[in-house]
Design a protein around this nucleic acid. Structure first.
Lengths: 224, 224
DNA sequence: GCATACCGAGAGCACTGCTCTTGACAGTGA
DNA sequence: TCACTGTCAAGAGCAGTGCTCTCGGTATGC
């Protein structure tokens, strides 16, 4: 019972912190959060040992939310439609980022000064890219991807290392292009969220859709 | 004479602020900068009306430094070697980011909370991408790029709008791919600088080189 | 029933950005 | 030469911050 109250309070702190994050930005004020909750700042330290730990909790939540959103979107597509699954992932990332820009900034923006990502954020962080790996792996298993590109040995090693984690049987050429698509995807979303596209592209949606469709073709994923 | 002292002092404040940025991170402390300069915090306000204005000055400097670095690297390559010029741009961006990670984070990371980019940062910010546009424009003028891709009308409009600014005569297909390369480039560099590649790629250099080389081919830039 | 563990409130410390006032100095016109 | 003007650094002070510590009160487990 006490434990349940504690869990509820912890969640309540996180949600109001999220709200403050959305209105104020990354410099989250513990005291302001405490004020909103009608309590004093020191009380928050009963639940989070420091401000960084609160941020870490929010980061972890953001990663799992993004990962879940991506996984859900990809899971709703016909398994045989590999390009469709890829595009679902891309749009899920962008849609989530547009809906939660401050949480996106929290995880994909510049890291907080002294902040070091605890190792327990790693599994949550890699969830989204693992979904992409599943698509590539399925396409590879279906014999749709061929090892059509000769990579330099050192680059091949990098690609193979990532591939071992997300798509162990995929040929390195398409895998390298899929990795590039991932970077392309986040480059686009980051530029859009962080305002780097201002005064250049006013309605980025169509451009995004076209770019990602081209990436699906470039990787070699067949359209259903 | 009075004016020269003032300019020197302004520059000195910026350089120590840059140093603090490199060691402390984005939350720059005016008081700490003042202490390092052997003066009191209020004295800084004679040179910068607020902390945000100091950050704006640093951001502007960072943009021009990056732009200059990119322009210099591209300018050193034989004009006929279009792929070489493209690759010089890519590596200049990454090298500058690796050499000045905190300044990179300042301009391409999550924007500071209340901070709104003054409009005078726009020309400095667009300088680097303008260099890329020059390469595409030259390739187009040399008849090396063909309009080989049919873009959806709305996406074509986005691409054309950017093209009007950086490469007005380039065909939209290659231009769209060049734009994608730009996003790919900054996606890679941001992931590397912000630690998103940790536990996945330990030596990103070769992978970066391979990815950008592939992008040059994908755009259609001929290797010399 | 009682000891234990937990919890919120409050005071306090060192720090921050920023404002205001004060006194010192350099350059200028009479 | 002298007074005036503009610029500058210094210092005090305000409101806010993260964080620590102590002090009562309350629920939990034996």
């Amino acid at each position: 019972m006490r434990a349940r109250l504690r869990a509820e309070m912890t969640e309540e702190i996180k949600t109001t912190a999220r709200r403050h994050l959305a209105t104020e930005g990354a410099n989250l004020s513990l005291r302001a959060v405490a004020r909103d909750l009608g309590m004093v700042s020191s009380a928050i330290y009963r639940y989070f040992p420091s401000r960084d730990d609160l941020l870490t909790a929010l980061i972890l939540d953001a990663y799992t939310a993004l990962g879940g959103s991506v996984a859900a979107a990809e899971g709703a597509v016909d398994r045989a439609d590999l390009a469709g699954r890829f595009l679902a992932i891309c749009h899920a990332v962008r849609d989530w980022a547009l809906a939660n820009p401050h949480e996106y900034a929290l995880i994909y923006g510049s890291p907080v000064p002294g902040y070091v990502a605890p190792t327990d954020t790693v599994p949550a962080a890699t969830r989204a890219v693992t979904v992409l790996g599943g698509v590539i792996e399925d396409a590879s298993a279906a014999g749709l991807l061929r090892d059509d590109e000769a990579l330099p040995p050192d680059a091949a090693q990098d690609v193979a290392r990532v591939g071992a984690l997300i798509a162990p049987h995929a040929p390195l050429g398409p895998l390298s292009r899929a990795l590039g698509s991932w970077l392309h995807l986040f480059g686009f979303v980051s530029f859009e969220i962080f305002g780097q596209l201002k005064n250049a592209v006013d309605v980025p949606g169509p451009l995004f859709a076209q770019q990602m469709r081209a990436q699906a073709v470039y990787i070699g994923l067949p359209t259903a």
